[in-house]
């Protein structure tokens, strides 16, 4: 068969005495071109898969020789360690839900403002580029008891004493919103631009009101994109590390999974326990994503451009 015919015209005419296994492999898509992917594949195996497997194996060899599952038993029976799962969720979930929910109406409104889009984009990309450490350093002053936020709040008489916005989970959530919201906004904006305005126009012609059109046309079409965006902002929020240690209270309500893993590795030098916590983090996060994507597959999944899906 010559699905490759365009590329291999001279070779197709080769005598049929050639060993046929090579042809059969080529028909299935395996030929010399595949070697081009080998360096990247080797790299992936050496630097990602091998360390991950090493970490998983290490996590089953506890330092106190408490048996195969020792580290996992220890994690789930120690309330301080077990609590990290709850802490991680109570920081990552509100932050990513807020980011997505705020991004939807704003992205819809942004869509028709083509001229101002570039400047808004640039302003929003800035915090992504600055990175979490710098945002944390800025918020330490800005949200502090004598920072500008509390000065303004007290100046207009909203509070008598400074709001405690630092060294608790609020500081961490605020920093996750500042770095995560632009990401969610730009992502949803790119999904919104994929929706054909004609469908909304059609609904209007049929007499649907604004809220009807939003809930029955736009939102269903947008929901797969919303699920994807939620997953990605959740991943960003779930791996919160610098903001949790700098802005939060890393031994209290922002003792998140990443902090626990880093502490086990670099303060207690218990690499097996650190690996076990890493494995738990990855499993919990991938489970959450699987659930969201599983729900997503039950939503509308077709073309947003024609509506004939």
């Amino acid at each position: 068969m010559s699905s490759m015919g365009t590329l291999d015209l001279p070779r197709v005419q080769a005598p049929s005495a050639q060993p046929s296994w090579r042809h059969r492999l080529r028909d299935r898509g395996i030929d010399r071109l595949l070697w081009l992917v080998a360096p990247a594949f080797l790299f992936l195996v050496l630097l990602f898969i091998y360390p991950s497997v090493y970490g998983i194996v290490l996590s089953f060899q506890p330092m106190d020789h408490s048996g195969f599952l020792g580290n996992y038993v220890r994690f789930f029976f120690d309330p301080f360690l077990r609590g990290t799962i709850g802490h991680t969720f109570s920081i990552a979930l509100p932050a990513s839900i807020f980011n997505v929910v705020a991004a939807i109406p704003l992205a819809l409104a942004m869509r028709r403002r083509k001229r101002s889009q570039r400047i808004v984009n640039v302003l929003l990309v800035t915090p992504i580029t600055l990175g979490t450490v710098l945002v944390a350093e800025g918020l330490l002053n800005y949200l502090g008891p004598r920072g500008w936020v509390n000065r303004i709040l007290m100046g207009i008489g909203l509070t008598d004493k400074p709001l405690p916005l630092l060294h608790n989970m609020w500081g961490v959530i605020i920093s996750l919103i500042i770095t995560g919201f632009p990401f969610a906004f730009l992502l949803i904006l790119s999904y919104v631009s994929g929706i054909n305005p004609a469908m909304d126009a059609a609904a209007r012609t049929l007499g649907a009101g604004a809220s009807q059109r939003f809930f029955r046309i736009t939102l269903p079409l947008l929901s797969p994109g919303i699920a994807n965006t939620f997953c990605l902002t959740f991943v960003l929020a779930f791996s919160v590390f610098p903001s949790a240690t700098l802005l939060g209270n890393p031994s209290g309500d922002s003792h998140v999974l990443a902090v626990a893993a880093a502490n086990a590795a670099f303060q207690q030098y218990d690499y097996p326990l650190a690996s076990a916590i890493s494995v738990i983090t990855a499993v919990v996060e991938l489970l959450m994503i699987a659930i969201v994507l599983g729900l997503r597959s039950r939503l509308y999944s077709g073309s947003t451009a024609t509506g004939k899906g």
């Binding site: 360390p51 990443a258 590795a265 890493s278 990855a282 996060e285």
Partner: peptide, 18 residues
């Protein structure tokens, strides 16, 4: 895709150990 989807600290710790 996995190295991008998984939090860097999870594979970073075993990688650093190695």
């Amino acid at each position: 895709l996995l190295p991008i989807m998984v939090p860097p600290i999870t594979y970073g710790i075993p990688l650093a150990t190695l």
